[in-house]
Write a protein that binds this DNA or RNA. Structure first.
Lengths: 128, 128
DNA sequence: TACTTATATACTCATATAAGTATATATACT
DNA sequence: AGTATATATACTTATATGAGTATATAAGTA
C-alpha cells in the first residue's frame, strides 16, 4: 500500500492510486472480512475479534490501515471504540455490493455476517 | 499472490482465495491497466507495451501472472501472441464494469482505452 | 540453416507486507 | 490515586513483490 496519509485522500487528487490501494486492502482476507462486516454493521474492535477469531493486534493493525486511507472512521462509545464504513465514493460501495450479492460463494464471509447479527455477545467474550 | 496453479482454479474449490488474489491483481496499476484494456479488446503483447508505454518484460511478467491464475488466455496468431480476458465468473466482470462505468475518474485508463482503438499502429512501433 | 522478431523467463536487488509478541496508551471503574 | 480493560503501536522476522537487465525460447523469414 502506498504510504499516503488521509489528508491526501481528502484532497482527492490521485484517484488511480486510491483505487489500487483499495484493491490492495481487499486483497488481504482479514481486511476483506472486516470491510464486509462493517458493510453490514458498526462494530467495535473486540466484536470483530470475536466474530473473526483473529487476534486483537491483528485486527487493530488492519483497522489502522483502513483508517489511514480513510475507508473507515472510529468513534468511542464508553469503553469501546466502534468502527464504521466511510465510503464516500460509489465505486467502492458498488464493489463491496458485488461481493455481498455473491455471498454464497464465500462461506467465511457469510458466516461472519451471520455472527455479526448477535455481535453484542462478543463484547463480553472479549475479556482476556 | 498465493502460489496457486491454474488447475486449482479450474476445480474452483477455494473461492475466497481466488477473490483475494483477484484483488491483488487489481492492486497493481500495470495489471489493472492490462485488464481494463483486455476488457475492451483482444491485444498482443507489443500492442500493450505500445499503449501503456511499459517495457516488454514488465508487461510479459504481469501477463504471466494473469495467465497463471486463469484470468486471461493467450493465443498465437502468426508472429503475435494475443491475450484475451477469461472471466468465467460474473463477480469479476462486474467489478471491472464498475471501474469502466467511472472511467472519467481514471485518466490513465481512459487514455489507454482511447489508444487501444487504434492498437494496430502499435504493432509496427514494437520493433526494437 | 542462419537470422530476425515476438515473447517468456531467470537473476538480482530493493522494498513492502503480514503476523506474533510484548508493551504503551487511554479511558473507565473502585 | 490505583487498577482493570479496550485498543493501539513497536519491534522483529519471514515472506512476497515489483522492477530492471540480460538472456532464452520459439516461430517466421531469407
Amino acid at each position: 500500500m502506498s504510504d499516503i496519509k488521509p489528508e491526501f485522500y481528502e484532497r482527492k487528487i490521485d484517484f488511480m492510486n486510491k483505487l489500487t490501494d483499495f484493491f490492495k486492502v481487499l486483497s488481504d482476507e482479514t481486511r476483506l472480512r472486516i470491510l464486509i462486516l462493517l458493510y453490514h454493521k458498526k462494530l467495535c474492535v473486540c466484536e470483530m475479534c470475536g466474530i473473526t477469531g483473529e487476534s486483537q493486534p491483528k485486527i487493530s493493525k488492519h483497522l489502522a490501515k483502513l483508517r489511514d486511507i480513510g475507508l473507515v472512521k472510529d468513534e468511542r462509545q464508553e469503553q469501546f471504540i466502534f468502527y464504521d464504513l466511510n465510503l464516500n465514493e460509489q465505486v467502492y460501495k458498488g464493489i463491496l455490493e458485488k461481493i455481498v450479492d455473491n455471498i454464497n460463494d464465500y462461506p467465511v464471509l457469510k458466516s461472519d455476517i451471520e455472527k455479526c447479527k448477535h455481535a453484542e455477545k462478543y463484547l463480553e467474550s472479549c475479556r482476556r
